[in-house]
Design a protein around this nucleic acid. Structure first.
Length: 190
DNA sequence: CCCTGATTCGC
DNA sequence: GCGAATCAGG
């Protein structure tokens, strides 16, 4: 799908709001990859962002470094979008929307954009820390070979508990916390 | 591992 | 102009 004016405007808006390229790609949907978004952003000469997420210091190579690509085109299409992450549904609680987004939009575009914003929020929620509903929390005694042993809270506190989500055989953590554990290891290592 | 943006260059 | 592949970093 090409870059229609609508899509370009939405791209600009979201980019300037500080959403990541992949988030924008997911919002635009329909086979748009984050690479496509980034490429378009550059062509539009957008660069400055509201929120410098990370990876800011791009060092300009003084001359031209050898970044040669193999002559193999390999133009096979990969339509697959990033998997929508395992459905970790937490108990829906009232969420105060920051209603700034929908305000300054005019015409028929408003409704569409509102839908997009809702999707953005969902993405954000998926990326937030996993919260186990109280009724599902388990104590030390209830752990077994198939429960995630990720500790939550202060071990000395009364409301300390373990994650307790299902973990695969031989694995100490659930899928979610296994990733978490990896991350922290990487940081502490070296 | 997950992710981020930046860059190049064949198309 | 487009964006996959790649690079470089967190």
């Amino acid at each position: 799908m090409g870059w229609t004016e609508e899509r370009v405007e939405l791209l600009k808006k979201l980019w300037l709001e500080g959403l990541s390229a992949s988030q924008i790609a997911a919002t635009l949907g329909e086979g748009v990859t984050r690479n496509a978004v980034i490429g378009k952003v550059h062509r539009l000469k957008l660069s400055g962002r509201a929120k410098p997420t990370s990876a800011a210091p791009r060092v300009r190579p003084s001359v031209r470094p050898p970044v040669r690509r193999p002559v193999t085109p390999q133009s096979a299409g990969r339509p697959a979008l990033p998997s929508p992450q395992a459905t970790i549904s937490t108990k829906p609680r009232g969420m105060p929307m920051s209603g700034s987004a929908t305000a300054a939009v005019q015409g028929a575009t408003a409704l569409k954009i509102e839908e997009e914003v809702v999707r953005e929020v969902e993405v954000v929620q998926q990326q937030a820390e996993l919260v186990i509903p109280v009724e599902q929390r388990i104590s030390l005694l209830e752990l077994n070979e198939h429960t995630c042993k990720w500790p939550i809270g202060d071990p000395l506190s009364a409301d300390f508990y373990f994650c307790g989500q299902h973990s695969d055989e031989g694995r100490p953590y659930c899928e979610f916390h296994a990733r978490r554990a990896f991350h922290q290891m990487e940081k502490k290592k070296r």
